[in-house]
Design a protein around this nucleic acid. Structure first.
Length: 423
RNA sequence: GGAGGGAUGGCAGAGCGGUUGAAUGCACUGGUCUUGAAAACCAGCAAUGGGGAAACCUGUUCGAGAGUUCGAAUCUCUCUCCCUCCGCCA
């Protein structure tokens, strides 16, 4: 949610910033509603003040034993009038809220302007693809040939977009999680947390998945809970309605969870393999920082995610998303794209974003600024560090051998009891 | 699932239908004292919104929502969450 003061005072500026991300702000409707809001609010407040002072007088008169009936007669109509005003005001504010909740974050000045994925800007590249004296296959062919990936059975158990991993692959998958958590806690200063995988609607609203993206969520109606689409939701919501002391900042959490996505809008997209699943695992990095430090933190957090790829010696590139390709809540996003020899291209494996105060405003996630002594909104950030399923794919495809096996990256061998090859 | 108890400021914890946004304690901030610190003492200290150039005026909030009333933290109803005991259970 954007700052309402900013909207009122710099509506045109906000409109232009949002236009860069191809969002059309309905300026005239907003202006009209704002005029009505202001008028109604002033009137309502005046009536409330009137009621309050009259009631106080009645109390005093009654206390000294005077006849209060004349006073009661005077205020007879006040209540009805007040109620009408309050209802009208509530109505206008509800209309404003509906509009405002659907407004995305404003892109940071440093974000490249563009329409789509095509306009994203490559920031840097790391590593080079291994030379292979054979034709690389993708993880599906590789995994199915080894009998260690089973999409068909998963489909009969659940539906499309699920997978069963077995033996060496399942173990490699688990090792990756362990490796990522260890790296982030021991080398990057994150605190490991384990959180609920089911959350309520307030939590999804807080991080921006609701109300606009209800279709993307798995919803358990009976209990009114949702399966988390990412650990970002429960972890960032740990700060909801809290005022965090300045000395505890920055808060840095790392969290491994499964993630559940309905993929409602992606029928026919990435239907092959493990790239896009209804259920996948992710190690997520979340930071809560002072407003002045969030861009510095974004660079660091992105570096923390990159470190995993570097340790696994997986070639990747860092891409700054353009205004048209960024997510709803983000002010700036870097994607990490890993090289997949089976597809012959770079594919997203991490997305690192600074949300500035956009989520914090919805969450009421604040810190106490020692300079003012007042609570102020935090800045929130998160990034995948990394998406485990896609990392597994990357390891499989980059470390495949001519005879269809998978070498285990050096640093991972310790997590697999010294195993050097799978298959 | 059955029975009971509860939800108040950063925390703990009082609260009569009427100058209660809310006693008190802790924490925090400033001051006195001290070589310094502690202790003691004094003072301050909820959040959030609207109007206004400002001074300042004013609204809302005691788990959430509805109701009674001139007036609700206080009374009524509904819901949510938490706790205790019993049952079931990884």
């Amino acid at each position: 949610m954007l700052d309402q003061h900013l909207l009122r005072s710099n509506l045109e500026e906000v409109r232009q910033a949002l236009a860069k991300r191809r969002f059309q702000l309905d300026v005239s409707t907003l202006e009209q509603l704002e005029v009505r809001r202001k008028k109604l609010q002033i009137e309502t407040q005046d009536l409330q003040a009137e009621r309050n002072s009259r009631s106080k007088t009645i109390g005093k008169e009654k206390a000294v034993g005077n006849d209060i009936q004349p006073l009661l007669d005077e205020v007879a109509n006040l209540g009805d009038q007040l109620k009408l005003n309050e209802q009208a005001l509530e109505q206008v504010q509800a209309e404003l809220d509906v509009i405002l909740q659907a407004v995305p974050n404003m892109p940071h000045a440093s974000v490249p302007v563009g329409k789509s994925e095509q306009d994203n800007v490559e920031v840097r590249r790391w590593g080079t693809a291994r030379e292979m004296d054979f034709t690389a296959v993708d993880h599906v062919d590789l995994g199915e040939a080894l009998g260690l990936l089973d999409f068909e059975t998963a489909t009969t158990i659940a539906s499309a977009r699920f997978v069963i991993m077995k033996a060496g692959i399942a173990r490699l998958h688990r090792a990756l999680i362990q490796f990522m958590l260890d790296t982030h806690t021991q080398e990057h200063g994150y605190t490991e947390v384990n959180v609920p995988y089911l959350v309520n609607a307030d939590s999804l609203f807080g991080t921006g998945q609701l109300p606009k993206f209800a279709e993307d969520q798995f919803h358990i109606e009976k209990q009114g809970l949702y399966l988390i689409p990412t650990a970002e939701v429960p972890v960032t919501n740990m700060a909801r309605d809290k005022i965090i002391p300045a000395e505890q900042l920055p808060v840095k959490y790392v969290c491994h969870t499964p993630c559940f996505r309905s993929e409602a809008g992606s029928y026919g997209k990435d239907t092959r393999g493990m790239i896009r699943q209804h259920q996948f695992e992710k190690v997520e990095l979340v930071q809560l920082v002072q407003p002045g430090k969030s861009y510095e933190a974004l660079e660091q957090l992105t570096g923390h995610a990159e470190a995993i790829l570097q340790k696994l010696e997986l070639p990747y590139r860092v891409v700054a998303l353009c205004t048209g390709d960024m997510g709803f809540s983000a002010a700036k996003t870097y994607d990490l794209e890993v090289w997949l020899p089976g597809q012959g291209k770079y594919r997203e494996i991490s997305s690192c974003s600074n949300f500035e105060s956009f989520q914090a405003r919805r969450l009421k996630a604040r810190w106490r600024n020692p300079e003012t002594g007042k609570p102020e909104l935090l800045h929130t950030l998160n990034g995948s560090g990394l998406a485990v399923g896609r990392t597994l794919i990357a390891v499989m495809e980059n470390y495949q051998t001519k005879d269809g096996k998978i070498r285990v990256p050096g640093l991972l061998q310790a997590y697999l009891g010294g195993l050097t090859i799978i298959g």
